[in-house]
Amino acid sequence: MAPRSSVPPVLEAIGLRKTYGDVVALHGLDLSIAAGEIFCLLGANGAGKTTTIQLFLGFIPPTAGCVRILGQDVATHALQTKQHIAYIPENVMLYPNLTGLENLKFFTTLAGHGDLDRATLGTYLDRAGLAPEAAGRRVGTYSKGMRQKVGIAMAMAKGAQALLLDEPTSGLDPKGSNEFSRLLQTMSAAGVGILMATHDIFRSKEIGARVGIMKHGQLVACMGTEDLSHSDLERIYLEHMHD
């Protein structure tokens, strides 16, 4: 767990539990992510990673416990908490009939930044690595990597303090994955707290300050990456998976 301080964590789960009938998807999760920290959540399919992210987003209500963003309970302050978060799923699905710039304009307006002009929005797309000529093209023609970049531009333009990512590098080529990681590190350096659910052990070690391993809805391990090698992390992960 991250050390307690007077500043509320960017993302915090306290005794978080989610059940679907008799199936326990999440079993009393406690998690705290500080500003500027990248926390990578590893685990097999169905371990509860996506459920955790959906609970942070308020898409599903918790069965017990609570989720807080910058100290505010998501259940009671749904819209307020969403002003501070950005979400990048495995596939950033945008409106295919709109251009990258138009999509960015729409989503930043939804985020309450409707005053941003095209030039400023273009700058964000540029910083996210999207080629300027692509910004004016319909998103229907974009590759997955390009859509992920628009997603990052959205987070930057929104000024999000927390970033929730659900297997964002899945399906990206190594170069695209590397570029994406660099962008996350840049955002982290700017103080953004990041929770990334992933299967990519290498990437977790590369960019994560801490890594958590989930199994059957429980956080079975949580460790800093500083003193771990890639092989150590892989071994620990597999040990948990083979019990």
Binding site: L79, K82, A86, A111, L164
Partner: peptide, 14 residues
């Protein structure tokens, strides 16, 4: 089905 609903509702809009 397009996947845009999740992105929209991740923003402060009900």
């Amino acid at each position: 089905e397009r996947g845009t609903l999740a992105l929209v509702l991740a923003h402060p809009v009900s």
